[in-house]
Design a protein around this nucleic acid. Structure first.
Lengths: 143, 143
DNA sequence: TTCAGTGCAAAAGATTTGCAACCCG
DNA sequence: CGGGTTGCAAATCTTTTGCACTGAA
């Protein structure tokens, strides 16, 4: 997949730098839907001189290349997902973790919306909020 | 409905002030899903001394009273909706307006999610992105 | 060699907080 | 009258921007 990013970057006239590869690889390697700062912190040990600004600038490029999607789970910061398929997300209101919801079919719902609205639909984001298994266990243990 | 907010505030030990009523009424009166700043600007002529901080503090209270819901449509700021029923929203990627999507049934979709996930689900937000009728017209006129 | 990219620092926005004066109850 | 509320200003936090230096091609 490095090859893929590499050629995609080159094709669009972007240069291939170690920072960009590291940021993209970090996103591909995790299911935690990290924020810019989380990515920055994770790469600190390996790239001690990399700045947060570079993370933001790189994410901007990855967005335009459609290699990442942006999540707005309702926190103060954005989160990013290298899985650009159209899937819902769920956030734990207790610990803040964000998980994917795969294997759910929303086509009937989205078809209804498309048929009802006068908008031309181009994208969608479905967010659920709840308590994750770990926090449920922690809560029952505490009681 | 003023009566309703008034007693709700009092019941919870909050004082009833003109600012709070004005902010809530502004939210009830619009379908534009305004941001804090939009509310502030709208009330400026009537309450020239009111500050943005008061808008934020009041919205915080209205949230705890479940009188408004928060929308995260992917802009840099939050938007608010005094219609607290569970309905999807759609944002125009061209002009930024946010509309309600009523009359769409998402129960089958949400049931599927509830059955699949190990989370305890407590809330949800569905966002669609597209181009509103006005911007479509403007685009075709321009071409 | 050359120009896009990096990293730093400063800027820009949104939201929060501290605090003295104010006013609802 | 008293404590919650307001409004201002300053603080905080995320994200963006300007710019000199660096490094990919």
């Amino acid at each position: 997949m490095d090859i893929c990013v590499t050629s995609l970057l080159r094709d669009k006239g972007f240069k291939v730098t170690p920072q960009r590869l590291a940021i993209y690889n970090a996103l591909v390697a995790t299911k935690a839907h990290p924020s810019a700062e989380m990515i920055y912190n994770e790469l600190q040990p390996v790239y001690p001189t990399m700045s947060l600004a570079t993370v933001y600038k790189t994410i901007e490029i990855l967005k335009t290349l459609k290699l990442v999607q942006v999540l707005n789970v309702g926190e103060d910061s954005f989160r990013y997902d290298a899985d650009t398929t159209n899937h819902p997300h769920i956030r734990c209101m207790c610990c803040g973790r964000v998980d994917d919801l795969h294997g759910v079919d929303s086509t009937e719902f989205t078809d209804q919306v498309a048929a009802t609205t006068k908008y031309t639909i181009q994208g969608q984001q479905f967010y659920f909020y709840g308590v994750c298994p770990k926090c449920q266990a922690a809560a029952s243990a505490a009681s």
